[in-house]
Amino acid sequence: MTNAKNLETQPQAGKPTQPTRPVHEVGDRPVLAPAVDIFENADEYRVVADLPGVRQEDIDIDLERGELVVFAKRQLPREGEGLALGRREGDFRRVFRIPEDLDRSKVEASFDNGVLLIRLPKSERVKPRRVSVTAA
């Protein structure tokens, strides 16, 4: 039940991608770690991430080698003279270590108002099963 406690590995902000595990070409663009919530119940895990200003088609979700990698390209069109520039330039990226009890084929994601929701259902064999006692 609690093996998602340390679900997340360190966000690799600014670090170059390792050549043995090329996840994305990050290049020179800054990488931002989005704020996330992680929830769990008997059936699934849920990862919720704030990705404001990202287009749905620019979100990549990869499940690979025990990791969930969320990458989202963000463009900040900047025209005219900037009177205030508080939004940080860069792409969103975050890496999570995922538990082994997932049904990887049933992972789903939706994107609504700049908030990404990833649902990671647990595989049937780890779900608690209720057995009803029948009278003989």
Binding site: D50, L51, P52, G53, L76, R78, E79, G80, E81, G82, L83, A84, L85, G86, R87, R88, N113, G114, V115
Partner: peptide
């Protein structure tokens, strides 16, 4: 304290204010 991140631009004919408000409708 500063609240949501925002940009403000002067585009000569108009101003443009852009604020990150994820999850807001």
């Amino acid at each position: 304290v500063a609240g949501p991140a925002f940009d403000v631009f002067d585009e000569s004919e108009r101003y443009r204010l852009v604020a990150d408000l994820p999850g807001m409708r």
